[in-house]
Simulated scan of single mutants.
Amino acid sequence: MTSPAETYRVYAIKYAHHERRSSANFLGGDTHDVPMPLDYFVWAVVGRDRSWLVDTGFDQAGADKRGRRITRPIDEGLASVGIQAADVQDVIITHMHYDHAGNRDLFPNARYHVQDEEMSFCTGRCMCHRPLSVHFEPEDVASMVHKVFKGRVAFHDGDDEIAPGLTVHRMGGHTAGLQVVRVKTEKGWMVLASDASHFYANIEQKRPFPAVYNVGDTLEAYRRIYSLADSPQLVIPGHDPMVLERFPSAGEEIVRLA
């Protein structure tokens, strides 16, 4: 018998920022070319008895290498919502790009949930091509491989249940194995879209972000994401500063999504 779905509290925790223009945020550019910065988030899914972390961000060394600005270390942001990094038992990695799969030693007791297709992608022949590999850090990928051999990785093939009321769904597009996270909340089913849609504008206007593996899969994912959420307002993009404006504050650069 399937357990009844628990409802969760969900937090978006900003940890970094990057100034950017809109022409860099849409495939084919943008004629307006106005300021359109990126915020970087991780997400905490908090249940009655345990919590899950969605993505792990990058650290100061990663920020320095990529020209990004850390606004608050991730462990501090998590602590402010009552989560200690050493206590995190499960991390859902939406995809293996540097800004979602870094901080590789910050969660020593966690099991990592990744898609089969994503690990095949980031360790296979596609990484021979610079336009695809540039978004990955080899050390992050190697660290995940080591975690596999230590028994700390749970693999998922497409749609899967992590816990009652918490599921993952492979979308592809941005990367071959990108997955989104569907969460049951008091507001209804919410989708943490991560980089399936960097900004609200990407999915609302059906204009993909330019870092893309498969444009067709990206466009198809927009439709499917909306079908998984109970309303468009419950679709949360991966990098949009407007997230901090649309939801109530829960601390320094943290909002409670539900």
Rank of each mutant, 00 (worst) to 15 (best):
W43Q: 10
A61Y: 07
P35W: 05
S51P: 03
L53Q: 04
V45N: 07
A44Y: 01
F58E: 00
P37F: 02
V34H: 10
H32E: 15
D30M: 03
A63R: 01
W52C: 03
R50K: 13
P35I: 02
F58I: 07
W52G: 02
T56F: 04
A63C: 12
A44E: 03
R21F: 06
P35F: 04
W52R: 06
H32F: 14
R48T: 13
H17K: 07
W43H: 14
A24K: 12
Q60E: 15
G62R: 05
F41W: 03
V34D: 09
N25V: 09
V42R: 00
T56L: 06
G29A: 12
S22C: 10
G47D: 07
S51I: 03
S51H: 13
V54N: 05
D30C: 09
D49W: 11
D59S: 10
A44K: 01
G57R: 01
R20G: 01
P35L: 06
E19V: 02
M36D: 05
S23G: 08
A63F: 02
F41P: 00
E19Y: 04
R21M: 08
L53I: 14
V34P: 02
E19H: 10
D55K: 11
F26Q: 02
V54T: 08
V54G: 01
G29P: 09
T31H: 14
F58R: 03
T31N: 13
P37W: 01
R50A: 13
G62A: 09
A61R: 13
N25A: 12
T56V: 10
Y40E: 00
H18Y: 11
P37S: 07
G62S: 10
R20E: 12
R50L: 09
S23Y: 08
S23H: 12
D59L: 06
R48I: 08
T56R: 03
A63T: 07
V46M: 14
M36Y: 07
P35V: 04
W43G: 00
S23M: 06
L27C: 11
H18E: 15
G57A: 08
A61I: 11
D59H: 08
Y40I: 03
R48D: 15
V42I: 14
V34C: 09
T31W: 15
F58V: 06
L27F: 09
A44Q: 02
F58L: 06
L27S: 11
A24V: 03
N25E: 15
F26R: 04
D39A: 08
D49C: 06
V34G: 04
V34W: 12
L38F: 09
T56Y: 03
G62C: 11
D39K: 00
W52H: 12
V34F: 14
R50W: 07
P35T: 04
V42S: 00
R48E: 15
G57V: 07
G57S: 11
T56C: 09
A44M: 08
D33E: 15
D39W: 02
D59Q: 05
R20T: 05
D33W: 08
V45R: 05
V45W: 07
R48L: 13
F58Q: 03
R48V: 11
D49P: 00
L53T: 04
P35D: 05
T31D: 15
P35H: 02
G29D: 10
R21D: 02
D55I: 04
V45P: 06
R50T: 12
S51E: 13
V45C: 11
D55R: 11
W52S: 03
L27R: 12
L53P: 00
D55E: 15
A61W: 07
Q60P: 04
R50D: 13
